[in-house]
């Protein structure tokens, strides 16, 4: 019975593939230690390469806990911080897809593993 209870607890959890911490861990494994404060700077930094959006915050707002809005289509965007939107940073494929799309959009290049790790660390640190 002692073994069964933890198993049942696992089953009761929502079927997210991973936790934000696991996603951060695998980024840190590629990049080295992550810095939430560097991630925050990165999130707010203006880029002159941005075609539509000139920063992450342009769509996601300065507050990762707040809903954002696509600068061009004006579609509402769920908050990006896991504390405000619990399915954020739980699907590695989705995280990778959006780093690819949005880094290319804002920076006109791919993000480095270090940037991704810092960004993720910042989002997890938002309480």
């Amino acid at each position: 019975m002692k073994r069964v209870v933890p198993l049942l607890v696992l089953l009761a959890l929502p079927a997210y593939a991973e936790t934000p911490q696991q996603i951060l861990d695998s980024l840190v494994a590629q990049a080295g230690p992550a810095s939430a404060s560097r991630g925050e700077q990165f999130f707010r930094a203006k880029s002159s390469a941005g075609k539509t959006a000139d920063s992450c915050a342009a769509c996601h707002t300065d507050n990762p806990k707040a809903p954002g809005q696509h600068v061009k289509t004006h579609k509402a965007i769920d908050p990006i911080a896991p504390v405000a939107q619990k399915d954020r940073f739980t699907d590695p494929a989705k995280v990778e897809k959006w780093f690819k799309r949005n880094c290319n959009e804002v920076l006109a290049r791919a993000c480095t593993p270090q940037e991704k790790a810092d960004f993720t660390a910042y989002m997890i640190s938002v309480k």
Partner: peptide, 8 residues
């Protein structure tokens, strides 16, 4: 603000 464009 919440509409912005007819495509929304």
């Amino acid at each position: 603000k919440k509409i912005g464009t007819p495509g929304n």
